[in-house]
Simulated scan of single mutants.
Amino acid sequence: MKSISSVYRLAATCMFTAFSILAHAAPAGASPDQLLQEATLVLQQIDASQYTALWQETVPFVRSAYTADSFAKGLTQSRQSLGTIDHRSWASITRLTYLHDKSVPDGVYANVDYATQLRDGRIVYEKVSFQLASDGRWLFTGYAPRQDQVAAMQP
Protein backbone atom coordinates (compact mmCIF):
# COMPACT_ATOMS: atom_id res chain seq x y z
CA MET A 1 0.00 0.00 0.00
CA LYS A 2 1.34 3.41 -0.92
CA SER A 3 2.02 5.93 1.78
CA ILE A 4 0.05 9.19 1.91
CA SER A 5 3.21 11.20 1.15
CA SER A 6 3.92 9.23 -2.04
CA VAL A 7 0.31 9.76 -3.18
CA TYR A 8 0.71 13.51 -2.57
CA ARG A 9 4.01 13.51 -4.46
CA LEU A 10 2.40 11.68 -7.38
CA ALA A 11 -0.53 14.10 -7.40
CA ALA A 12 1.80 17.10 -7.23
CA THR A 13 3.90 15.71 -10.09
CA CYS A 14 0.79 15.16 -12.23
CA MET A 15 -0.46 18.68 -11.52
CA PHE A 16 2.95 20.19 -12.32
CA THR A 17 3.08 18.25 -15.58
CA ALA A 18 -0.44 19.33 -16.53
CA PHE A 19 0.29 22.99 -15.78
CA SER A 20 3.54 22.77 -17.71
CA ILE A 21 1.76 21.32 -20.74
CA LEU A 22 -0.95 23.99 -20.55
CA ALA A 23 1.62 26.75 -20.24
CA HIS A 24 3.36 25.56 -23.39
CA ALA A 25 0.15 24.87 -25.32
CA ALA A 26 -0.94 28.50 -25.66
CA PRO A 27 1.06 30.33 -28.31
CA ALA A 28 2.73 33.57 -27.36
CA GLY A 29 0.43 36.54 -27.56
CA ALA A 30 -2.70 34.38 -27.61
CA SER A 31 -4.45 36.13 -24.75
CA PRO A 32 -7.04 38.76 -25.70
CA ASP A 33 -6.69 40.08 -22.15
CA GLN A 34 -3.02 40.80 -22.86
CA LEU A 35 -3.99 42.77 -25.97
CA LEU A 36 -6.62 44.75 -24.09
CA GLN A 37 -4.10 45.55 -21.37
CA GLU A 38 -1.52 46.71 -23.92
CA ALA A 39 -4.09 48.78 -25.83
CA THR A 40 -5.27 50.43 -22.61
CA LEU A 41 -1.69 51.38 -21.74
CA VAL A 42 -1.13 52.82 -25.22
CA LEU A 43 -4.31 54.90 -25.02
CA GLN A 44 -3.28 56.18 -21.59
CA GLN A 45 0.09 57.24 -23.06
CA ILE A 46 -1.63 58.93 -26.00
CA ASP A 47 -4.09 60.73 -23.71
CA ALA A 48 -1.17 61.91 -21.55
CA SER A 49 0.84 63.07 -24.62
CA GLN A 50 3.66 60.62 -23.78
CA TYR A 51 4.55 60.26 -27.43
CA THR A 52 8.31 59.92 -27.09
CA ALA A 53 7.99 57.04 -24.64
CA LEU A 54 5.45 55.40 -26.94
CA TRP A 55 7.66 55.91 -30.02
CA GLN A 56 10.51 54.12 -28.21
CA GLU A 57 8.25 51.08 -27.71
CA THR A 58 6.99 50.82 -31.28
CA VAL A 59 8.05 48.18 -33.75
CA PRO A 60 11.33 48.89 -35.54
CA PHE A 61 9.70 49.48 -38.96
CA VAL A 62 7.63 52.33 -37.49
CA ARG A 63 10.63 53.89 -35.75
CA SER A 64 12.59 53.76 -39.01
CA ALA A 65 9.73 55.38 -40.93
CA TYR A 66 9.12 58.26 -38.50
CA THR A 67 11.33 60.41 -36.34
CA ALA A 68 10.20 60.82 -32.75
CA ASP A 69 9.08 64.36 -33.58
CA SER A 70 7.04 63.44 -36.66
CA PHE A 71 5.52 60.49 -34.78
CA ALA A 72 4.51 62.82 -31.92
CA LYS A 73 3.11 65.40 -34.33
CA GLY A 74 0.96 62.80 -36.09
CA LEU A 75 -0.38 61.37 -32.84
CA THR A 76 -1.05 64.84 -31.46
CA GLN A 77 -3.13 65.74 -34.52
CA SER A 78 -4.98 62.43 -34.46
CA ARG A 79 -5.79 62.59 -30.77
CA GLN A 80 -6.76 66.28 -30.80
CA SER A 81 -9.20 65.63 -33.65
CA LEU A 82 -11.40 63.71 -31.21
CA GLY A 83 -11.86 66.22 -28.42
CA THR A 84 -12.60 65.35 -24.82
CA ILE A 85 -13.25 61.68 -24.13
CA ASP A 86 -15.97 60.69 -21.69
CA HIS A 87 -15.31 56.92 -21.79
CA ARG A 88 -14.12 54.05 -23.95
CA SER A 89 -15.32 50.48 -24.39
CA TRP A 90 -13.51 47.92 -26.46
CA ALA A 91 -15.58 46.83 -29.44
CA SER A 92 -13.46 44.16 -31.13
CA ILE A 93 -10.11 42.43 -31.23
CA THR A 94 -8.87 41.18 -34.58
CA ARG A 95 -5.74 39.13 -35.22
CA LEU A 96 -4.27 39.14 -38.71
CA THR A 97 -1.34 37.33 -40.32
CA TYR A 98 0.50 39.10 -43.09
CA LEU A 99 2.86 37.32 -45.45
CA HIS A 100 4.50 38.96 -48.45
CA ASP A 101 2.48 42.16 -48.09
CA LYS A 102 4.05 45.34 -49.49
CA SER A 103 2.71 47.61 -46.74
CA VAL A 104 3.87 45.75 -43.61
CA PRO A 105 6.55 43.19 -42.69
CA ASP A 106 5.51 39.56 -42.36
CA GLY A 107 4.05 38.67 -39.01
CA VAL A 108 1.07 38.41 -36.73
CA TYR A 109 -0.77 41.67 -36.10
CA ALA A 110 -3.73 42.65 -33.97
CA ASN A 111 -6.17 45.53 -33.88
CA VAL A 112 -8.06 46.51 -30.77
CA ASP A 113 -11.00 48.69 -31.69
CA TYR A 114 -12.77 50.93 -29.18
CA ALA A 115 -16.15 52.61 -29.30
CA THR A 116 -15.38 55.94 -27.66
CA GLN A 117 -17.99 58.32 -26.34
CA LEU A 118 -16.93 61.94 -26.40
CA ARG A 119 -18.00 64.50 -23.84
CA ASP A 120 -20.30 66.11 -26.44
CA GLY A 121 -22.15 62.77 -26.80
CA ARG A 122 -20.75 61.70 -30.17
CA ILE A 123 -19.47 58.16 -30.63
CA VAL A 124 -16.19 57.72 -32.50
CA TYR A 125 -13.88 54.74 -32.94
CA GLU A 126 -10.24 54.32 -32.05
CA LYS A 127 -8.10 51.53 -33.44
CA VAL A 128 -4.87 50.59 -31.68
CA SER A 129 -2.66 48.24 -33.71
CA PHE A 130 0.16 45.91 -32.71
CA GLN A 131 2.61 43.40 -34.12
CA LEU A 132 3.53 40.27 -32.18
CA ALA A 133 7.28 40.29 -31.43
CA SER A 134 9.35 37.11 -31.38
CA ASP A 135 9.46 37.25 -27.56
CA GLY A 136 5.64 37.16 -27.32
CA ARG A 137 5.13 40.85 -26.57
CA TRP A 138 2.72 43.00 -28.55
CA LEU A 139 4.50 46.06 -29.94
CA PHE A 140 2.62 49.19 -30.94
CA THR A 141 2.30 49.88 -34.67
CA GLY A 142 -0.39 52.53 -34.94
CA TYR A 143 -3.35 54.53 -33.74
CA ALA A 144 -6.28 55.53 -35.94
CA PRO A 145 -9.29 57.47 -34.69
CA ARG A 146 -12.23 57.63 -37.10
CA GLN A 147 -15.93 58.45 -37.31
CA ASP A 148 -17.08 54.92 -38.21
CA GLN A 149 -15.91 51.33 -37.97
CA VAL A 150 -15.39 50.76 -41.70
CA ALA A 151 -11.57 50.72 -41.51
CA ALA A 152 -11.38 48.64 -38.31
CA MET A 153 -9.98 45.53 -39.98
CA GLN A 154 -7.01 47.15 -41.71
CA PRO A 155 -3.60 47.32 -39.91
Rank of each mutant, 00 (worst) to 15 (best):
T116V: 15
Q37R: 10
A152D: 10
S6P: 05
L35R: 09
A28Q: 13
A65H: 03
F71E: 01
L82P: 11
E38P: 02
S20F: 15
A53L: 06
T67N: 05
G74C: 03
V128T: 13
S134L: 11
Y98M: 08
D148R: 06
A53F: 02
S20G: 14
H24K: 09
W138C: 04
A133W: 05
A23S: 12
G74H: 03
G121F: 00
A144L: 13
D86M: 09
S89N: 15
G29M: 10
A30V: 07
A152H: 00
S49N: 12
P32S: 10
T52N: 14
V104F: 11
R122D: 14
L10F: 08
D86G: 06
S31M: 09
Q147P: 09
V7L: 15
T40I: 00
A91C: 00
G29S: 10
T94Y: 01
Y143V: 06
A48W: 02
A91V: 02
A144E: 12
V124H: 03
Q44C: 05
M153W: 04
L139E: 10
L118W: 05
A11S: 13
S81Q: 14
S78Q: 15
P155V: 13
Q131M: 12
M15R: 00
G142P: 14
P60A: 13
A115M: 01
L82F: 04
C14D: 01
I46V: 15
F19R: 01
D135F: 01
T84I: 05
L22V: 11
S49T: 07
D120E: 12
D113I: 10
A18D: 00
K102E: 11
W55C: 10
L99R: 05
W90C: 07
A48F: 02
Q77D: 11
P27Q: 08
P155F: 10
T97S: 06
S92Q: 10
V124M: 11
A144G: 05
R79V: 02
G136R: 00
S31P: 03
S78Y: 06
K2Y: 13
P60C: 04
H100T: 05
S78K: 15
Q77I: 09
I21V: 15
E38M: 10
Q77H: 13
P155W: 07
G29C: 08
R88N: 09
F16N: 00
V104Y: 13
R119T: 12
T84N: 08
Q154V: 07
Y125T: 07
V124Y: 02
M1I: 05
S6T: 14
E38R: 14
G136W: 02
K102H: 05
A28Y: 01
H24G: 13
A68T: 11
D135R: 00
D69H: 03
A53S: 12
R95Y: 01
S49W: 00
S3T: 15
Q80V: 08
K102D: 15
C14V: 14
D120Y: 02
Y143Q: 08
T94C: 02
S89Y: 11
K73S: 15
Y125W: 15
S70W: 02
Q147W: 04
D106G: 06
G74W: 01
I4N: 13
A152S: 13
R146A: 07
Y66C: 08
Q45E: 07
V62R: 10
G29V: 10
Q34L: 08
T13R: 02
R88I: 02
R137C: 08
D148Q: 01
K102W: 04
C14I: 08
A30N: 12
L139Q: 15
S49P: 00
L139M: 07
G83V: 13
A68R: 14
